[in-house]
Design a protein around this nucleic acid. Sequence first.
DNA 1: TTGTAAGCGTTATCAC
DNA 2: GTGATAACGCTTACAA
Lengths: 328, 328
Amino acid sequence: MKKFVTIKDIAIRAGVSINTVSRALNNKPDINPQTKQKVLQAAKELGYIRDLNALSLKNGITKTIGVVFEDSSNPFYAEVFKGIEYCARKYGYQIILMNTERDYINEIKAIKTLIEKRVDGIIISPTQFDSDDISYLVSMNYPFVILGVHFENSQLDEVYSDDFKGGYLATKHLLDKGRKKILMINGYMYKSVAKMRYQGYVKAMKEYGLKPYHMVEIEEGYESCFNKISELKDLDYDAIFCFNDVFAIAALKALRTFGKTVPEDVSIVGYDDISYASFVHPTITTVKIDKFQEGMIAFEILQERLSEKRDKPKQIVLDVELIVRESA
Amino acid sequence: MKKFVTIKDIAIRAGVSINTVSRALNNKPDINPQTKQKVLQAAKELGYIRDLNALSLKNGITKTIGVVFEDSSNPFYAEVFKGIEYCARKYGYQIILMNTERDYINEIKAIKTLIEKRVDGIIISPTQFDSDDISYLVSMNYPFVILGVHFENSQLDEVYSDDFKGGYLATKHLLDKGRKKILMINGYMYKSVAKMRYQGYVKAMKEYGLKPYHMVEIEEGYESCFNKISELKDLDYDAIFCFNDVFAIAALKALRTFGKTVPEDVSIVGYDDISYASFVHPTITTVKIDKFQEGMIAFEILQERLSEKRDKPKQIVLDVELIVRESA
DNA sequence: TTGTAAGCGTTATCAC
DNA sequence: GTGATAACGCTTACAA
């Protein structure tokens, strides 16, 4: 296997002590320029590459953060990741990415491993199936940021979008278009995100003097939504508010199978504004979250915590925006 | 900041030496069961979590691999990542993910950082703008696997798909449908992938006694393709073979803007078979690559190398499959 | 200006 | 069965 050059090797080559090497490599002042030159030369010849792990052991800082997502192949998280990475790069951090596949057991394992790796901090979008692991992080005072969801009655670092407003805007838009029988295809309500969007939906309906029409909770994924809509073939509705754009795209497709047109027969509003929402036909009216920014902010919040610039919990609520396209 | 419990702390608590603690924690045989129990108890009470970095320093093994992608938000890579992760989980490896954004400078930096982190191995989809960095990895005998592309005249560990065949199948399918004026919207030809697909296209055309009709090289991304097709509005063609499905989706959209219907006026074939290829309307005929499997294989090849089960380079060529849908 | 030695958390080697 | 001690690669007091 590979063998790395150490400062010891350089020291021997240059005929100095290891810490003279360290001095030269780290641009310390108290060193003779000639010695420095000699050391640097030796280092170059040998092809020295510093060992950041050894450094970490010394410092207690790994310059690495952990990111725990439900599913990084979901365009939402994929984009968030880019935002995190953008900032991480700026500050010289590496990222260990782990997906939970929406399995709480995986979430626990991921956190454990990340702590074993001594990552400086963690950015996590929790499954919310349970939150003992989060409590654990709190109890050991581990730096972490919750992304995408909001834990009520807690004092955590969080960045999430204003999903109540999003649900409200989406529904109001449908109502303004004259729709009344608005079906909501939602995610599971134990997730705060789904709950908030539903509450926004309810609020808008009420404002228009209507009762919430019909809401179903389904698991994530195109198939899941496609099947549900097929199943609800006989339900009478004139609009669908979807939990996310993938659902909306699935809805589009499902409605087509039984000859309904969008937006004429049924209006559709999605959520997230993933790029594919504007690639399909008709393009999808949706609630936009600035995902890249959400990732950046998550990192920044974590960074503030790590650099001890801030002690109190910080919660950033991202504004959302209704993007009107063809589907509603 | 956080402070971690060390085996020393446990030793003090249990009233034994640190290496007795190590013995207990690692299930070594030569230890009194009672002592072991006592130590384990102390470890639990203190909330001990082992430090994998310290262990790495000792072993010279980090149980971490680096993954360098052009863009992990591209559904192709997103899926590949899942495959890598699936195997990594199985073998107990963590993954540091870094994107290059198709910038060779970023690629160099990523590799450097990963080596500094002493990752056990690297899986990389190179930009192919240059390959000094790859040569460097070879020269230092660093374990790595090239993913998605093939370097001619080299002896590297690689996993890539049979893009010559893919290009051929796609084009042949269009020809069999009676299309002759087949436009190819390709990626840059300095990438072996683009080159292979083009060669497949040429071969099929020749077989049907035709000259390659028209091929353009453009950069990746929906916009890029959409604009190019709008630009080529006056070109006379009856089919498009797209470098990937995102291009195909863009083509669909662009053609719609000037009233051409798919597949009646223009047939379209994409490449990759990302999930969105079957979500859009019309669904896209495409060349399928098993992305998850490609990721798994990449890891397996790397793993074989790491466990020294294999010494010689291994190159796996994944078969591809034409998936016929509505667009052609 | 340079070298020596301790220490980061862990395991392995050797005595006891 | 258990405990010192060295070692992994590096930085940082402290000494020279």
